[in-house]
Amino acid sequence: MSFQEVIFYLFSLALLLSASAVVVSRNTIHSALFLILTFFTTSAIWLLLEAEFLAITLILVYVGAVMVLFLFVIMMLDVNLARLKEGFIQYLPVGILVAVVMAAEMIMVVGSAKFGIQSYPLPVPKAADYSNTKELGSVLYTEYVLQFEIAAVILLVAIIAAIALTMRRRPNTKYQSPAKQVMVKKEDRLRVVKMDSE
């Protein structure tokens, strides 16, 4: 086994273990942290595939931003896991059935018969000065520009929808307007009263 293979199996093992720990773990914070570990190991495997740009972007977007907000929310929740896990045994047979069906479907659609290692030629390693950032950009903004922009618009719609759904108008809340605060002059606040000295 070459050194690369050792690293690959090490990270794959860590990936599978942490991914299952996300589901199994009793504590929601632990689950979220295991999810972060999953992202990290995935990114390491992508680095082994020499997809540096994607690997770093995965860390930047998912670990650096999405999971921070996730943790932020989870930390403030008071989740009672005992109640959530009620009736676990009762629903177990149905759950197993669904899982088996899904696994079978996935094997049929993306199994090794169609996407196995033997059905593709070995990729040719690129030279050391090859920049996959540039390569990705040149395809993304020419050939796939329409799909790219549609994705952007969908995201924008999602952002606006999320804000619109959660925004509550509370007329009684008092807000401070920094612009007004900055514009305040001495005359607006201060009144000098002349009094006779006694």
């Binding site: 540096e52 770093i56 972007t57 930047l60 943790l71």
Partner: peptide, 19 residues
Amino acid sequence: DASLLYILALTSVGVYGVI
């Protein structure tokens, strides 16, 4: 090659220590 991105990714990971 993507060192600027690497820096951005790592500085954003540092927040986990705090959280």
